[in-house]
Design a protein around this nucleic acid. Structure first.
Lengths: 146, 146
DNA sequence: TTTCGTGCAAACCTTTTGCAGAGTG
DNA sequence: CACTCTGCAAAAGGTTTGCACGAAA
């Protein structure tokens, strides 16, 4: 995995400044290990420096997203989630009953992606899709709908 | 297609009251013909009665959603979209460049649904999925990324 | 030294809620 | 007549923005 110093260098290479806040925020995204909200990332940053403002976290996440360093995903709960883009492409299965989040490897989506291209001429952005549903445990126990 | 009076009857049958506001709002959802925002539905209602409050529109859409009369979909732009549930199950392809929305028939997703069930034990809620990407026109013209 | 980035405070946008009065059954 | 729904106004929650000061290059 690329070390976060390398990622910070990319900031400078593109004419952005390398500030301690950006360092901390990027590290927090990395440490969160996937699908962390802006608020969660900010809380992590506050442990190191209680003066960092939430708006700085938002602005930095925006910058990192534009640069392709992090991915932003809409989990459907009204908040955006962030994770490092460098991790292997994968998707999420979210259980609507227990909230469990499973990772789904990308090759499961390739046939669909191919068909959308062939039949609809549509190039789907299959980066970090989220599928809602019921996981194995909750599906079996279910009497029907919750 | 079921007439909206029948749907209004379902309200009364379940102990809810049949008000002119609910009538107008349900009709507006029907007339919008799919993926309309609460604000758009409300604007349509205002043409008939400028006194209807936006909160009434929200409360009614919530009620209709709970009753399964309309579906709520998160289009990923920070707003929810509503459409009549009685229409044939379908999904949406949203072009991130030109904003065009195409409908996708459900059978295209069935193989994926089956594989998620077989390989992950996950029963995906494939009701009104939204896929972002580039449509045929925008894909061809694109020099790369926007 | 010249920008760019930050903290602070306030605004924004969609959606939700408390309440008293109006309208339905 | 009883109780639900509505309009109004205000709040909530996540995110964005204007501004003057502070810090990178």
């Amino acid at each position: 995995m690329t070390h976060h110093y390398d990622l910070l260098e990319r900031l400078r290479a593109q004419g952005h400044r390398l500030t301690p806040q950006r360092d901390m925020i990027l590290l927090a995204v990395h440490d969160a290990g996937g699908h962390a909200s802006a608020e969660e990332i900010h809380q992590q940053v506050l442990l190191q420096n209680p003066n960092v403002d939430l708006s700085t976290t938002y602005r930095t996440l925006e910058l990192l997203t534009e640069m392709g360093i992090v991915y932003r995903t809409d989990m459907g709960d009204g908040t955006s989630r962030y994770e490092l883009a460098e991790e292997e492409m994968h998707h999420h299965l979210v259980c609507r009953r227990c909230g469990r989040v499973m990772d789904l490897s990308h090759d499961v989506l390739e046939p669909l992606q191919e068909r959308l291209r062939a039949d609809y001429g549509f190039a789907a952005d299959f980066t970090h899709m989220v599928f809602q549903g019921l996981c194995e445990g909750c599906h079996g126990e279910s009497t029907g709908e919750p």
